[in-house]
């Protein structure tokens, strides 16, 4: 067993510097690497280029890095529900690249899987495809999209072990598995770090080979953005 376990978030984020490109798992606030984000706030690194489906909310998730003006560029598919984000984008302080959600997932997966680029039909004929190479296959048009290049991928899983194996829970899985191994260094934080051998190899979502550092996260808030319930009859 190759040991990926590090003592804490501070050790997990060693080597993080200004102007780096980071990937963050999560959809909305679900499945975001809360501990890594808090540590980046604490470190105060700046000039960051972030790849994440969303940009958090004003006072949580990546919104915390935006508040500290630590981010220079965001690559996302949906950025609603964040006033500070909107302000920085409209004022030009923040560069924003909006891309289709499936394209974002596949550009991560391409990086993970060793493909330099992929062709997707998403965005053809729209401003998203402007200036990009397009090609026809079987009568349909596709847009060439490049694999992401990132320094760190920060992901969050439900359970993991020191070998770096990961299991996700519910829809908190989202982009997390696609970002594992898609950056030079993948840092996984988990709710439960279990002894090696306890996870059933049949049930592992991401094999440890895609993870360089793993640690047990602390004090997860797991905020709900739109708490929606139905009445009992």
């Amino acid at each position: 067993m190759i040991n990926k376990k590090v003592a804490n978030v501070s050790e997990a984020l060693q080597g993080v510097k200004d102007n780096m490109t980071f990937m963050f798992g999560g959809f909305g606030l679900s499945g975001i690497p809360e501990n890594a984000i808090a540590e980046l706030v604490k470190k105060g690194v700046k000039g960051l280029k972030c790849i994440s489906n969303n940009a958090g909310v004003d006072d949580f998730g990546l919104g915390l890095l935006l508040q500290g003006k630590q981010i220079d560029k965001m690559t996302s598919s949906y950025v609603g529900e964040n006033d500070e984000f909107e302000r920085q984008m409209l004022s030009g302080e923040l560069e924003v690249e909006l891309i289709p959600q499936g394209t974002l997932a596949e550009r991560c997966r391409a990086a993970q899987a060793g493909f330099p680029a992929i062709y997707t039909p998403a965005g053809y004929g729209t401003e998203v495809a402007e200036g990009k190479e397009t090609r026809e296959f079987d009568g349909k048009m596709y847009v060439l999209e490049y694999a992401f290049k990132a320094d760190f991928a920060f992901v969050k899983a439900w359970k993991g072990d020191a070998a770096g194996n990961l299991i996700f829970k519910g829809t908190a899985r989202n982009f997390n598995p696609n970002m594992c191994g898609a950056a030079k260094i993948t840092v996984a934080e988990v709710e439960e770090l279990v002894p090696v051998g306890e996870l059933d190899p049949n049930q592992i979502h991401i094999p440890g080979i895609f993870v360089q550092r793993i640690f047990k996260g602390e004090r997860y808030e797991k905020r709900i953005e739109q708490r929606t319930v139905r009445q009992r009859d």
Partner: peptide
């Protein structure tokens, strides 16, 4: 979900809390 049974790890694309039915599955974005 019924009140009190919301799970932050089970939401829909609108970020609303949801439930799943028998036969449901979860998967990654790709």
């Amino acid at each position: 979900p019924f009140e009190g049974e919301e799970d932050a790890d089970i939401i829909n694309a609108g970020k609303q809390t949801i439930t799943t039915l028998p036969g449901a599955s979860f998967f990654d974005s790709a």
